[in-house]
Amino acid sequence: MCGIVGLHLRSPDLHPQLGALLTGMLCEMADRGSDSAGVAVYGNAAWCPPGRNCVSVLELSAAPDEIAAALGGDVEVRALGETLLVTGTAPVEALQSAVLAAYPDALISGFGADVAVLKGVGHPRDLTAAWGLAEATGWQGVGHTRMATESAVTPSGAHPYAVGPDQCLVHNGSFANHATIRRELRRAGVVFDSENDTEVGARFVAQQLANGRDVETALKELCATFDGFYTLLVSNSDSFAVVRDAIACKPAVIAETDDWVAMASEYRALAGLPGVERAAIWEPEPEVVYAWTR
């Protein structure tokens, strides 16, 4: 099944509560998929300090101090569960290149100036505790609980898929024609890390954004290109967007107040948000892109 949650905070007064609110939302969706989980947190200065870029890394077993020494410069490395956060003042592309040059088998699971992407195998309750998510601050968070159907249960197979700068995508459903689109993207020079169908959607959206399209246009193009059933949440450094397939097969609900916008696979993940009793609440219509900009 899988469960999606997302929270975009409009009120700075709520920024200190982002992690606690996101933890409650994610754990509420645990019975939709408890084999693995992941989050993308925007604006947490403890994980992505101002003036530094951040690269999230998986499949790297060396100790943080050893990695920092190998990378040199002003790099700092922090372990959060199975994810390592590598930060530095170098351009984010240079940080990624340095990690892969020193550790060719490492997997870059997220990168940017404002986002930390954490993934792991296990129950969301245990993972969020290991990450210390409840203490995280920030202005936006996205989460996913996974019931694996398309690929192995590994940290790298967990969502979010974050393949563009400060971008991420989470997905409930299945893309029927992902193999065809993957071949087309590979012919265009796009490199893949997995055979997961969700990565195809993430790479497609990232390519659209890199070509100058906005999130809303990119998701409209995805709807016209991909077959299957899906609910998607896409976020980047200034926006938050939701879209469902043409028959709205997978569940989703959106709630909006003056202080925040939130979405989840089910309403119960939103029920604990402050002021939800005053929120406008609705189910997103098929193939309508709902987008909010910071």
Rank of each mutant, 00 (worst) to 15 (best):
F204D: 00
N177D: 06
T137V: 12
E195Q: 12
A152H: 06
D193F: 06
F192R: 03
A148P: 11
F175A: 05
A134C: 10
G122R: 03
A134Q: 13
V170H: 06
V142R: 10
E184N: 15
G189M: 00
R187G: 08
A176G: 03
N177I: 03
V170E: 04
W131L: 07
H144R: 09
T198V: 08
A148D: 10
R186S: 15
C168I: 01
T180V: 13
E150R: 14
Q140R: 14
A152K: 09
L133R: 02
N172H: 11
N172F: 00
T154Y: 01
D166I: 08
T154I: 04
G143I: 05
V190Y: 04
E150N: 15
V142Y: 05
V205E: 01
G173E: 05
A152P: 00
T149W: 07
R146I: 02
S156D: 12
T128L: 01
T128C: 12
H171V: 07
R183P: 03
F204H: 02
S151Q: 11
R187D: 12
D166E: 07
S174I: 14
T180C: 10
L133I: 05
G138F: 04
N172W: 02
Q140W: 04
R125W: 12
V142M: 11
F175E: 01
P160D: 04
P155T: 03
E184K: 15
T128D: 01
W131Y: 14
H144K: 09
G189D: 10
G201P: 02
G157S: 10
G138T: 00
S151L: 07
G141I: 00
T154K: 06
V205G: 08
N177P: 09
F175C: 04
A152W: 11
A134D: 13
V170T: 13
A148H: 09
H171A: 06
R183W: 11
R186E: 15
P165F: 11
M147L: 14
T128R: 01
S194P: 10
R187A: 15
D126I: 01
N196E: 08
H123E: 11
A129W: 04
R203T: 01
A152E: 12
H144S: 01
V191N: 12
V170Y: 01
E150V: 15
